[in-house]
């Protein structure tokens, strides 16, 4: 069947050497591309002129010391906090036009868990982009929210008040809310902070499933020892961009030394060199 270029649903571009490469368009493009991002809270910049490109169908870690601007970078990319300068493209579009394709999981400690609501209600907040301000939450949508809760192993807790949950359970509820958003780019802020081992396994399993479905995952991560095991791509930041690339080649003692400076003990570097090289 002959198809004209205009009628092609997924346009392709013939490269010079005859290979066919996907062109930028809906469903393609870098999941998260950041150029010159600068954020300042006071006189000193928290994030200064940072470029970053996070790859599709991969798990990426944002790594850096405390106060390096990891969370700030994530929030400013999303427009949750204002940026002083910089451009953020999500799948080739400005982030403001791509909100439906993004799921954001804030730090667990950023909300008041004494808020009067139930677990399933929080998950249903993830359906906001679909239902809008006044749309009705149909039975089918409620069922889907329940399935998302089931995916993180929290279905039995659907009607609990959220204040009754442990830290790990709260993190799973937040992940379930992100699953309900059915996004293509998942941005998580410290998803493993202060959670139990069972929750950490449950979360990593879900994230790997998302990656297998072709979605991009970007997580702020503080545990250096698990970076090689969990992530494909790493972005090292300390106010400025230090290094970025595949974990195998970029997550090295040299780049970590550059990121953490004197704050990372030499013994830690030795350990990481072993696990990183393995």
């Amino acid at each position: 069947m002959a198809r004209g270029p205009a009628a092609t649903p997924n346009p392709t571009v013939a490269a010079r050497d005859g290979m066919v490469l996907p062109a930028a368009g809906p469903g393609t493009g870098t999941p998260l591309a950041v150029r010159g991002l600068t954020v300042s809270y006071g006189e000193n910049p928290a994030v200064f002129s940072v470029d970053a490109d996070f790859p599709p169908a991969a798990m990426s870690a944002i790594v850096g010391p405390n106060g390096a601007g990891k969370s700030t970078f994530l929030k400013a990319s999303l427009g949750v906090i204002p940026r002083l300068a910089g451009e953020v493209d999500v799948f080739g579009k400005p982030v403001e036009q791509a909100r439906a394709r993004i799921a954001y999981v804030p730090q667990r400690a950023s909300v008041d868990w004494d808020f009067p609501t139930t677990v399933i209600d929080v998950v249903k907040m993830g359906l906001y982009r679909e239902v809008g301000l006044l749309g009705r939450l149909s039975g089918a949508r409620s069922t889907r929210a329940m399935r998302c809760l089931d995916r993180v192993g929290m279905a039995d807790f659907a009607h609990r008040q959220i204040g009754q949950l442990s830290g790990g359970q709260q993190q799973r509820v937040f992940l379930a809310r992100a699953l309900a958003q059915d996004a293509d780019l998942y941005l998580l802020d410290e998803p493993f902070a202060g959670v139990d081992a069972a929750t950490e396994r449950a979360i990593i399993d879900v994230l790997r499933d998302l990656k297998a479905e072709g979605r991009a995952i970007v997580a702020v991560h503080h545990d250096l020892s698990t970076v090689p095991a969990y992530f494909d791509h790493v972005f090292l930041i300390n106010v400025r961009r230090i290094a970025e690339g595949p974990v195998a080649t970029t997550f090295t003692p040299e780049t970590l030394q550059a990121t953490y400076g004197g704050r990372l003990a030499a013994t830690h570097l030795d350990e990481l060199a072993i696990t990183g090289g393995a």
């Binding site: 999303l78 949750v80 909300v111 907040m125 982009r129 809310r177």
Partner: peptide, 11 residues
């Protein structure tokens, strides 16, 4: 009211 950051992120 529950989660300002999430609210901003979903528009």
């Amino acid at each position: 009211t529950f989660d300002e950051g999430f609210a901003e992120a979903v528009g």
